[in-house]
Design a protein around this nucleic acid. Structure first.
Length: 320
DNA sequence: GCGTCCAGGTCTACC
DNA sequence: GGTAGACCTGGACGC
């Protein structure tokens, strides 16, 4: 357990529209930074790693969708130098999507026969990231491979509980994702057995080892590259293939797997594919062609709005 | 109760 | 360079 005694309060003014509730806890249940964070009305207590620091966070909404304001209180173990504190704040603002301007995406989406419903239903929802390094997203992507969602969630829960730090602050105890260094030297078979993650244990350990031994760009570093170069870089990571790279890529990909291939086939072509796995490539091409640089945002909005879209478009869309 | 299938992919050996 | 098969586990399903 890590006691985070140093606290820093500040305000965040996200770029409107910004719906705090939809962004912090997505309609399909996706958490902000950790599945073990705590929600209470318009406040969330959570924890993540920013610039190698374990950071405890209390975020409370103090505004509206069109005039958003967030009261943030950040908890650290030690007081960092001023420039580091500013940098950590800036990373946090980026992670919660508060610096993300949705106007251009909305202008495109309102002209799209599928997306127009989703952006109406989820107006002000922003995409978020789980820290400033690729590790949490990459582990999540590996745990999503070849498993039903419930099992992926169970595996993720176990990895965080058993191997992550527990941040103690503001009377709460929040489990955060482990760093690569915390898992790199684990025994593979013991890791696999403890969290029942099977062959994924080896992939996560290889990934952690590479990130510990070699320098790898942060998510912001990858953003500085072109989308294609960022993806190429991500594909160098062990256990990360086309689907996983599209989940991690900060430029946003179109991560189609066998489940989403079925959903998007119905949306694009009005019918269920004969073989979901074989449909992945066609669906991916159609999505990227249709939405281009907004493919990830389109994917994100649609997946979060499947229940409403099923009714509005009169399609039976299998929920995640 | 038991056996079989397959799921929100990736890697590797083999051709 | 293309592709079949292996990989952990557990829930669903048929018998």
């Amino acid at each position: 357990m890590v006691n985070l005694e140093q606290s820093f309060a500040f305000k965040i003014n996200p770029i409107a529209p910004y719906d705090f509730g939809l962004t912090i806890r997505k309609p399909m249940g996706w958490s902000l930074f950790s599945p073990l964070e705590i929600y209470q009305k318009t406040t969330v207590w959570t924890a993540l790693r920013l610039e190698t620091n374990l950071v405890g966070l209390k975020l409370s909404s103090r505004g509206t969708v069109n005039e958003p304001c967030i009261a943030a209180k950040m908890y650290l173990k030690e007081k960092p130098p001023r420039e580091n504190l500013d940098s950590i704040k800036s990373s946090l603002i980026h992670c919660i999507g508060a610096d993300d301007d949705l106007h251009e995406f909305y202008a495109m989406a309102k002209e799209d026969s599928i997306l127009k419903h989703a952006v109406e239903d989820l107006y002000g929802m922003h995409s978020t990231s789980m820290g400033d390094t690729v590790f949490p997203s990459a582990v999540l992507a590996i745990l999503l491979q070849m498993a039903p969602l419930k099992r992926s969630n169970d595996m993720m829960d176990c990895v965080i509980r058993k191997y992550g730090d527990v941040a103690e602050f503001d009377g709460k105890m929040i489990h955060a994702w482990p760093s690569p260094g915390q898992v790199a030297n684990l025994n593979p078979s013991e890791f696999a057995k403890t969290c029942k993650i099977g062959y994924r244990a080896g992939r996560i350990l290889n990934l952690a080892e590479k990130l510990v031994k070699e320098s790898f760009p942060t998510l912001r570093g990858l953003e500085m590259l072109s989308s294609e170069d960022a993806k190429k870089k991500l594909l160098e990571l062990p256990g990360i293939g086309d689907y996983s790279a599209d989940i991690i890529n900060p430029h946003g990909g179109f991560p189609i797997d066998v489940w989403s291939a079925e959903v998007f086939s119905k949306l694009f072509f009005g019918k269920e594919p004969e073989n979901n796995r074989e449909a992945v490539e066609d669906v991916k091409n159609e999505g990227v062609c249709r939405w281009g640089k907004w493919s990830w945002m389109a994917f994100f909005y649609i997946v979060q709005d499947l229940e409403n879209l099923s009714k509005k478009l009169n399609l039976k869309l299998r929920l995640a």
